[in-house]
């Protein structure tokens, strides 16, 4: 028996309502982008939970390595001046 090959994998991102961020929903298999979009639609938006879908070939996703987590993300921890709460506003100043 021939070894069974598989359709390439695609990662699916759905937008739940207009203007929202696209969120990873899961993965599907498909041989072309039309099939990928249709399969994503039938798999991840059966209850109308999507207004738009992105499909991305899985091999095109580059993920950060968990071993690099500290190097990647810890340096951001002490840069609290990026947060609005870092700043003291004079009393009475509104809507800033």
């Amino acid at each position: 028996m021939a070894t069974e090959t598989e359709f390439p994998k695609w990662e699916v991102f759905t937008q739940i309502k207009p203007g929202a961020n696209y969120i990873h929903a899961g993965m599907i298999h498909a041989t072309d982008k039309e099939m990928a979009l249709q399969n994503a639609r039938d798999t991840y938006t059966r209850r109308g939970e999507g207004t738009s879908i992105w499909v991305v070939p899985s091999h095109a996703i580059v993920a950060s390595n968990p071993d690099d987590k500290e190097m990647f993300f810890d340096p951001a921890n002490d840069k609290i001046y990026r947060l609005p709460t870092f700043y003291v506003m004079p009393e009475g100043a509104k809507a800033i």
Partner: peptide, 11 residues
């Protein structure tokens, strides 16, 4: 023939 198509056909 594939699960994804099972969904499509029943849809």
């Amino acid at each position: 023939p594939i699960l994804e198509e099972d969904l499509a056909l029943t849809n």
